[in-house]
Design a binder for these strands. Structure first.
Lengths: 218, 218
DNA sequence: GTCAATGTTTTTGTATACAAGAATTGCGTG
DNA sequence: CACGCAATTCTTGTATACAAAAACATTGAC
């Protein structure tokens, strides 16, 4: 159980925004939220401040705070940055990763494959996440790791969409293999390229997905 | 004049932390701050929440919030990430920058040189900042630009230290020249390398500075 | 019927009040 | 004199109260 209710509320609201329960432009009504969470406005307001600083919501003085979902353009931009950050992580990790960490990486990858075979998508996401988190961690740069985790988390709901495309899973697994190979070989440029491509293609697939939805709507 | 006093307070506190007026581990006493700013605890608390989310302070439930200055290790890590982010900006900008933007860049650079000649360090910092901000902007990726600005701002107080080293200013100017050349040539890798080196050397100089201070203290 | 102006209602932003946990102080004991 | 324990004081976290600004509705004029 959390001590600060404000923090708990902030986490909940963040989750609602990530899952899309709150859409772009929705006003986050202090009173309504206070009633919903069974608290006063004070902790709700503190939670809203946190969302604003995180960039998940926008505050207009004397008007209220509104959720701010990234649009298609911003999402493509975010995927581009994510790709580059993962590339950096990979480049650094190629130099710094230990053998035991490499084993852990291979294991996560194997578990990923097993999940694909079983059709257990939850397990897949979990192991896939572990795979990437391991690479962040073994970049050997704690600050970089935190930044990577932050962006990874922010993009999470959008990555899931893209993974449903036909054949993407198998392709993704192959890319993971290549990444492990490069890391094992200590090939900085190779690891960077493999990871950049692996993530960038997600952004492109997502872009594709958005375009097709848009087209379908016309 | 700002409407929300809480935001004003947050800005002030941030400034105090950046300038070092508040040191690592200092407790940010709500009541004291409230008195100091002539307000009640409520806006102070909202400001503190913002600091915590920004990573400038740490909150321990029921204990208070404490300023959290980056240590030498984290600073080196941050410089490493900054170098890579600037490299990405440069790589993208090499493809996307316009001729007019290139002119602006050259102008900022010339102003930089003029400031060096006059010994006007404030002007130097201002123009140097403009130079880098232009590159972020012309990466063509708004999200990347924001991230770069955020980190640049956070490292600002530490960059200033390092620039006082003998000969660093002239070297820095030469690096700026090389960066402009690469951008003008559309040389992505060249721009990335030039920028990475330009920023990384700052981190190294800083590291050097820290080490010498440490040695002097022994 | 439309628009403007004014009065009412909401809502935000801040101040204050209160509850509960943490720190501190003072006393008693070994 | 050191240490442990209890009562007190402080501080945080939350609730409520109040002031001011914005949204809204009603009414009246054209």
């Amino acid at each position: 159980m959390e001590i600060r209710r404000a923090d708990h509320i902030a986490d909940q609201l963040e989750e609602f925004i990530f899952t899309g329960a709150f859409g772009d432009g929705d006003r986050l009504d202090e009173i309504r939220l206070a009633e919903r969470f069974g608290v006063s406005r004070t902790p709700v307001r503190e939670a809203l401040q946190k969302l604003v600083v995180s960039g998940l919501a926008e505050q207009i003085p004397r008007r209220g705070v509104f959720v701010r979902q990234p649009g298609p353009v911003e999402l493509v931009e975010m995927f581009e940055v994510m790709a580059e950050i993962e590339a950096i992580c990979g480049s650094l990790a190629a130099r710094r990763i230990s053998d035991t960490a490499l084993e852990a990486l291979k294991k996560a990858n194997a578990n990923c494959q097993a999940a694909v075979d079983c059709g257990d998508s939850d397990a897949y996401y979990r192991e896939n996440e572990k795979f990437h988190h391991l690479i962040y961690k073994h970049s050997g740069n704690g600050f970089l790791e935190q930044e990577a985790l932050r962006l990874h988390r922010r993009l999470k709901p959008f990555r899931r969409l893209q993974l449903r495309l036909r054949g993407r899973l198998a392709q993704s697994m192959a890319e993971h293999e290549a990444i492990v190979q490069a890391l094992q070989a200590g090939d900085q440029a190779g690891a960077a390229d493999a990871l950049r491509g692996h993530v960038a293609v997600q952004g492109e697939k997502f872009h594709h997905l958005m375009a097709s939805i848009k087209t379908a709507a016309e």
